[in-house]
Write a protein that binds this DNA or RNA. Structure first.
Lengths: 118, 118
DNA sequence: TCAATTTGCGTACTTTACTTAGCGACTTCC
DNA sequence: GGAAGTCGCTAAGTAAAGTACGCAAATTGA
């Protein structure tokens, strides 16, 4: 049945990437989420299935909705949205002026197209 | 901070009511969900916080969407909130590399904070 | 009436989640 | 040259999740 071992590795990799994006060390994230740092290390390598308590603490520390982590863990059916709707998010963001939106969209498109020609 | 002790009892009571609604004994439900029957008994009385694996197995056995049980356990926000969420969209965008994400996030935060002091 | 099952639960045990302590491989700074 | 800090990780322990076994109080049914 191959099991959820793959899901665990996926979740771990996701946590690691989000932690690095937030520029946090394992110890810093552990402190924010009130966990031990070796356990964060073990989770990132997919050695354990975290409890819901832990997932909620991690998502809070990483400023992510808990649903996103749960979905990564394969715990939630896809009924929770979340597509890479970056462009739409920028356009709909009331915290940005129109010219700021244009600037970000241009930067974004530049990044994406430069990646495609890789 | 007795905290989630109430949530646990609520979840247990909910499981029990759903099980009876389906006309199942604890042993039958346990077999369907591949659990031991004393454990089902313990869960219904709120003695333990089940893992996600167990919640999923129970919801499948009871023909309920997992989200319903998770909400009963207080694990899920009541709905999919989502504000602007531009940051989350950027972070989740698989079309961007990590350094590109960092760059866009920095630009974005710069815009937002400059607007606030206006 | 009285076996024979079935119900839910107490208890002791195993397994897994999670922590405390510490190691080796870098850095940084004197 | 170090000392001193930080990084991710291993190893060994504790605590909590989950199971195996059995018991007493209901049911069923002859």
């Amino acid at each position: 049945m191959s099991e959820n071992a793959e899901d665990l590795k996926g979740l771990g990799a996701f946590i690691r990437s989000q932690r690095r994006l937030a520029e946090l060390s394992q110890r810093e994230l552990a402190k924010l989420a009130k966990l031990s740092d070796p356990y964060v290390s073990q989770l990132e390598r997919g050695l354990h299935e975290p409890s819901v308590r832990v997932v909620k603490a991690l998502s809070a520390a990483l400023n992510l909705p808990a649903e996103v982590l749960m979905k990564q863990a394969g715990w939630l059916g896809l009924e929770i949205e979340e597509e890479p709707e970056t462009e739409a998010a920028i356009r709909n963001d009331s915290n940005l002026t129109n010219s700021q939106k244009s600037a970000m969209l241009e930067i974004y498109k530049g990044f994406v197209s430069s990646n495609e020609t890789k």
